[in-house]
Write a protein that binds this DNA or RNA. Structure first.
Lengths: 137, 137
DNA sequence: ATTACTGCAAAGCATTTGCAGACTG
DNA sequence: CAGTCTGCAAATGCTTTGCAGTAAT
């Protein structure tokens, strides 16, 4: 079992459950829901109550360690490690897979969007369509 | 009381509750939640059960009469009449006001985003920041 | 030892569903 | 009249909260 002893995020008390959550997120290959994270923790032979996982995620988000992603037309939030890149996601309409898009087409546009009535601080762009497996064409 | 007798959307059976919902949306100056719509209906001296409003909204969305908007970090969906314009919304971080942005900076970019692994059909862009009233600067 | 964290149970909230009676065309 | 729609109640699913015991520094 891999460890997360090193590079533990500053300002966060280390507990067994928090280590479990971080470990799962470090090895996740896609954003996970709180429930997913719970299951993964159990697969690793550990345990953490769902409400605890929510509390840990909330803390991690506040500390900037984790990013919370809300997908349109889904009532389940997913989380992933904050890799400090500006990212956007594409959601497959068929299998609901979430694909990260590394480059942001908005970046150079934001200045133009500034409006007398609204001070834009950030944005969230979500694409939808079909992933390679599901594309009907 | 204003009427919605004229231009009733095709293919939708007219009922008292559906007229109430449409009337409210026609006079709304911002996107409304199902609960908001219920309250407005009551203010108009009519009534409609919340679950009925949800069913009506679902129908209207399916028929293209209404657009459903999900805002990040809010667990409440809001609805507005489909005015057949491509729109994006800016959400105020302070007062949660939703401001519509009429022009879409993405339009000419979508073709470039197409990816071998993902066939993009549409997008949803949400801006956040502060509205005129709340901007701390 | 003190303070923060977790397990657990229960509550909250938006939304959905089942069903019988009411309404529409 | 036949089929659809609505009121109502209850369920659902995600997320949050309260509290008492447990663990971390």
């Amino acid at each position: 079992m891999k460890e997360v002893q090193n590079d533990w995020p500053a300002g966060i008390k280390k507990t067994r459950q928090r280590e479990s959550v971080l470990l799962v997120l470090e090895h996740a290959e896609k954003p996970l829901s709180a429930t997913d994270i719970c299951s993964e923790i159990e697969k690793n032979g550990e345990s953490a109550w769902l409400s605890t996982v929510y509390r840990i995620l909330e803390l991690f988000v506040k500390k900037g360690v984790v990013v919370k992603i809300s997908v349109l037309n889904s009532d389940t939030a997913v989380y992933e490690l904050n890799r400090f890149q500006h990212k956007h996601y594409a959601v497959c309409l068929s299998c609901r897979k979430i694909v990260a898009m590394d480059n942001c087409p908005m970046e150079r546009f934001i200045p133009k969007i500034q409006d007398a009535d609204f001070h834009v601080l950030g944005h969230n762009l979500e694409l939808y369509g079909y992933c390679g497996n599901c594309d009907p064409k």
